[in-house]
Design a binder for these strands. Structure first.
Ligand SMILES: [Zn+2]
Ligand SMILES: [Zn+2]
Ligand SMILES: [Zn+2]
Ligand SMILES: [Zn+2]
Lengths: 138, 138
DNA sequence: TTACATATGTAATATTATAACATTTAATTA
DNA sequence: TAATTAAATGTTATAATATTACATATGTAA
């Protein structure tokens, strides 16, 4: 048996998706698409499209998020995102450190309220908090 | 007296800033930088830099916001943004309508809480709510 | 097998944004 | 006022980000 049977088809990744995700997971900062491309050139990734296509899919299934204000990509560390595509990040304006916010039930509740107030339906959200982080405040 | 005296120096706009802001204010949707450029070509705006420089400044003083996930720009409709650079938007996934959220005190309170929880200081935030709007829900 | 959908490869090109440097205009100050 | 400095503008080129279009390959279902 080549590929073990998975209950969730979404979790079967193709080769390109796999190596892009691996790279993002071992990176400690968001990576840009062309940086991913250069990093993976020895693994057969030779064109922007290979990267963008893999990223598109990974984002679609919630394994990767795009930090819109940075045009950069991070692996998701919050198992819950897979379900709803929501994401919330803090971005330190001093040291550029980016981290995903885990416990965001309260946020979601508020945002749902905001959307409902205008009689519209919230599908997903993107939240970027620009902060000065603990270390940089010292 | 050519220019009336203003208490807040920030509100004196240069020619390019003025015409870019005017265009955004009369537009009913976010505009992309190159769309602004083409729109203003007859008014002497001939190079991307003229647009980007004006936008940078307008964003800095809170008169314009960038919708990061669309690389597009809108005039601020919330007098309060000038002070804090915060912005929150709803974006309809069906009809692309974008609108700025006015009353966001509650959001700010929540986000401050999130930042404080991690012992960091919130400087500003960018929030994009992807919704299905009132009209498109019908 | 055939038919279909999905994934991949490749080249070209579109879109968004900035760097570098020259010139002009406005604001300060000697 | 003239001289000095700072801010804004103009212009060209180029960098960085992302997509289109089309050819080929691979996997799946009938
Ligand atoms: Zn996540
Ligand atoms: Zn920091
Ligand atoms: Zn605003
Ligand atoms: Zn709509």
């Amino acid at each position: 048996m080549k590929n073990k049977q998975l209950t969730n088809k979404k979790e079967i990744l193709t080769k390109n998706q796999e190596i892009v995700l691996k790279l993002l997971e071992k990176s400690n900062e968001p990576l840009k698409a062309y940086s991913i491309l250069f990093n993976l050139s020895e693994q057969g990734v030779k064109a922007p499209l290979q990267v963008y296509r893999a990223l598109d899919r990974l984002i679609e299934i919630g394994k990767v998020h795009k930090i819109e204000s940075k045009n950069a990509f991070v692996a998701c560390i919050n198992s819950n995102c897979t379900a709803n595509s929501n994401a919330a990040f803090t971005i330190c304006e001093d040291c550029d450190a980016v981290s995903e916010i885990h416990d965001n039930k309260e946020i979601l509740k508020n945002l749902n309220y905001l959307a409902n107030r205008e009689k519209s339906k919230l599908n997903k959200y993107n939240l970027e908090l620009y902060i000065t982080c603990k270390n940089c405040l010292k």
